[in-house]
Design a protein around this nucleic acid. Structure first.
Lengths: 155, 155
DNA sequence: CTGGTTGCAAAACCTTTGCAAAGTC
DNA sequence: GACTTTGCAAAGGTTTTGCAACCAG
């Protein structure tokens, strides 16, 4: 699992659409795979592999954790899924369609979801200064949230 | 090991200075501790615990990995050291004095060191937009470096 | 039928913890 | 001497891998 994904992102709206993408690539639409997709759709935000293995409702259908990891990896290769690290602890996976970036407070751990467009100015500034095309999809922006910087919440 | 450090950063210039800080806090200046500090000074940049355990010259003096982790943790509590995650793989530790932030290319993994001042504009923009005091010391800014974005290095 | 996919078991990797012996002040 | 710190061993949490059975196309 590297930082970079392997294909252009494929935003899809449903499990069926996702499975169509899989078939196009010669991959199969298995039950375990559907479980992963359904859970990611149901979650609507970043979730751990462990959480995915528990299925949509929570520990009901279950699929093997190893298979979940293998499936998440393949779904990333195809561009349907991406993963990120919001702090310590397990990696978190989301559907590629959920175009979201995150601000995490290092003091209270509050996580703020932001629309990528809101960071375009920041990206532009970074590009002007360093020539880098920055993305904040893999690691969040870490800092002190307004509340914590107010009451001297510095680490 | 949480994201946040535990004390204000203590930038020191030498192992002796660092040990003085330790003693002030009632901590002891042991050989294993000195090894950690010397290795961090010698490295001059982020290194893994494993690398620290190998000592200054490389696998010569050695200290137990568990002790290295414990010492890195204590040095962080005191504010002499901080750690970061530049990608997957083990966490990396640096002296608090090495005020540096990083830009990592998600395609070629190139790591660019930047002076925190160069990111002040970016921090200001984030603060204006979200009210967050952003820091890029724990997670780097990930993106495509100029070379990779040129030749279509997008993942 | 063919080859991708699964579950299970085991291992790999990074980090933490328990504990008695040793070291520091 | 009191209390911190060490080394070793073992465990913990996350992710990967080997392999035979299984299933989708």
């Amino acid at each position: 699992m590297t930082i970079a994904h392997h294909s252009p992102m494929q935003a899809v709206e449903s499990v069926d659409e996702a499975e169509a993408v899989l078939r196009e690539r010669g991959l199969r639409a298995s039950a375990a795979r559907r479980l992963v997709l359904e859970t990611l759709f149901a979650a609507g935000g970043p979730v751990s592999a462990e959480r995915v293995a528990e299925g949509v409702i929570g520990s009901v259908p279950r699929s093997d954790l190893a298979s979940v990891y293998r499936n998440l990896e393949r779904l990333q290769e195809v561009g349907l899924v991406r993963h990120m690290h919001l702090g310590h602890g397990p990696g978190l996976y989301v559907l590629a369609g959920a175009a979201q970036e995150y601000l995490v407070c290092e003091s209270c751990n509050a996580m703020r979801v932001v629309d990528p467009a809101q960071l375009d100015g920041v990206r532009a500034m970074i590009h002007d200064t360093f020539g880098y095309e920055a993305g904040f999809g893999h690691f969040p922006i870490v800092g002190l949230c307004p509340a914590c910087s107010d009451h001297g919440g510095a680490e």
